[in-house]
């Protein structure tokens, strides 16, 4: 049985802030993040009213968002390309500046690598959960995560930030 539009509104109001923050981390652009979340909510709305309220609507919406993001990036084709070698940047002296540098470096990663890091370190998803959301194997997620973190470390030009065991 289809879910109610009222129920969807309540859900969308409660989750859109979180979705927008995730979209912001993925796109780094206010308008693109807005587009991405609205596209996502539109797809969730359609599923919700055509079929039924998803069992875990927040997870459903998050999965829709990251997959939509990857699809959009793929469609953008050659307009944006991640660089193989990110420029080395002097390690900033303050925590705030260091974080800004990390966010900038994140934005230059391949879209899928970026999604992996955002899911793992902002959404607190496990490797297995991340793999399920992206339709990848757990090994592929580990490998992407390892590679992406190494690239971030290279950007910072330091070995001090050692990975967790």
């Amino acid at each position: 049985m289809a879910g109610s539009a009222e129920g969807f509104m309540e859900f969308a109001t409660s989750c859109s802030g979180r979705l927008f923050r995730t979209a912001w981390l993925l796109t780094g652009d206010w308008h693109l993040a807005e587009d991405l979340v609205q596209e996502t909510l539109g797809k969730v709305y359609r599923a919700w009213t055509r079929r039924s309220r998803p069992d875990d609507p927040a997870a459903y919406a998050r999965t829709t968002l990251v997959r939509t993001f990857i699809t959009q990036r793929r469609r953008r084709g050659s307009s944006e390309r991640p660089t193989d070698s990110l420029p080395e940047i002097a390690v900033p002296e303050t925590d705030v500046a260091l974080r800004v540098t990390l966010i900038e470096a994140l934005a230059r990663l391949d879209a899928k690598d970026r999604v992996v890091l955002v899911l793992r370190y902002w959404e607190d998803r496990s490797v297995e959960e991340t793999a399920a959301e992206l339709g990848l194997s757990a090994g592929a997620v580990r490998s992407r995560c390892f590679r992406a973190l190494n690239r971030l470390r290279a950007v910072l030009g330091t070995d001090d930030l050692t990975p967790r065991p």
Partner: peptide, 27 residues
Amino acid sequence: LELALRAEALRIDPPVVDLVEGGVERG
């Protein structure tokens, strides 16, 4: 990275009303 992502994400105020209205429109 975890701290950077959290700080960056919470630095912004999401436009919730626009997002919900736009989402419903697209739906």
